[in-house]
Computed example of a mutant assay.
Amino acid sequence: MSDAQPLPPPPTRPTSIVYFGSPAEAVAPLEALIAAGHRVDLVVSAPDRRRSRRGSPTPTPVKAAALRLGLKVTDDLTDAATAAEDGADLGVVVAYGQILRRPLLEALPMVNLHFSLLPRWRGAAPVERALLAGDDATGVAVMGVEGGLDTGPVYAEVAVPIAPTSTAAELRTELSARGAELLIDTLGSGLTDPRPQSGTTTYATKITGDDLELRFDEAPAIELDRRVRVGGAWTTLRGERLKVWRAEIVAPSAAEIPPPGVLDADIVGTACGGLRLVEVQLAGRARQDATEFLRGLRPEPGERLGG
């Protein structure tokens, strides 16, 4: 998308909305719009997909919510352009997950509910990147949509602290709820006088498996704990992948810490401090309490996790 010509600004008080969203955290803002009396003519969500190899295709959480609310829903972006031609005057985007091209943005001005304090963590994975970076706060912003990646002006924002034990799932739930309130308040007061973003820009690239690997000899416990709290952290055990869903930091002074990667009871050593395993999942098995898992595993003295 090009920024050569400015895109039309959102209407001060929209009368008809097209909603773009897919995951669970985009449900609360949609429900809030309906509860507040806003007219949502169309919901655009990702196509149905299988959640397992043998399962049937299932709708996204937003599509399921839209059907429950009796709203028209589609996975075809051309329907959004048609809705704009038919009188919709604002698009609301919440974690939609697809690029919206300039012709649609010219036809339908949009605002985006973005889960960070802009311009920090523009992009696809702002909650996860804030956690991995050790930020002590994140937030949610109602911003205008421009041609660039999350470059638009901010109409309103609210900060949310990140506790030492906060998980990405917990933060997304809180940001969704706070964002729903912020969206309704902002639309109610009118989309006027946004402020341009200012400060140091950082980018929240998508999370990969490499980001979540627990490299015990390279990183301290505090950093590895952040990867666990993002969700999906993993290592290997006896040649199989072991996911670590919950863990606790063990300070060097709190116990005798084994060498990095070595498992001693439920504690594994790291580059600094230890990590106590709380909930794990071996490939092909269900999630399990780590104490119970290790009781059945019977680790050998000096057994290591990871490569």
Rank of each mutant, 00 (worst) to 15 (best):
E106S: 09
E106H: 11
A107R: 13
A107I: 09
L108R: 04
L108T: 01
L108N: 02
L108P: 02
V111C: 10
N112R: 11
H114M: 01
F115V: 14
L117C: 04
L118M: 02
P119T: 10
R120V: 00
R122P: 07
A125Q: 09
A125S: 14
V127A: 03
R129K: 13
A130S: 14
A130Y: 05
L131T: 07
L131P: 05
A133H: 10
G134I: 06
D136L: 11
D136V: 12
A137D: 12
G144F: 03
V145N: 02
E146H: 14
L149Q: 11
L149W: 11
L149D: 02
G152L: 00
A156S: 13
A159H: 07
V160F: 02
V160A: 08
V160Q: 07
I162F: 06
I162L: 07
S166L: 01
A168S: 14
A169Q: 13
A169M: 04
E170A: 09
E170H: 00
L171A: 01
L171E: 06
L171F: 09
R172Q: 15
R172Y: 15
L175G: 03
A177V: 14
A177F: 11
E181A: 15
L182T: 06
L183A: 00
I184Q: 09
D185M: 11
G188R: 04
G188A: 13
S189M: 04
S189Y: 05
G190D: 00
L191R: 01
L191T: 07
L191P: 02
T192F: 12
R195V: 12
R195F: 04
S198R: 13
S198Y: 05
G199D: 02
T200K: 09
T200F: 02
T201M: 11
T205D: 12
K206M: 15
K206S: 15
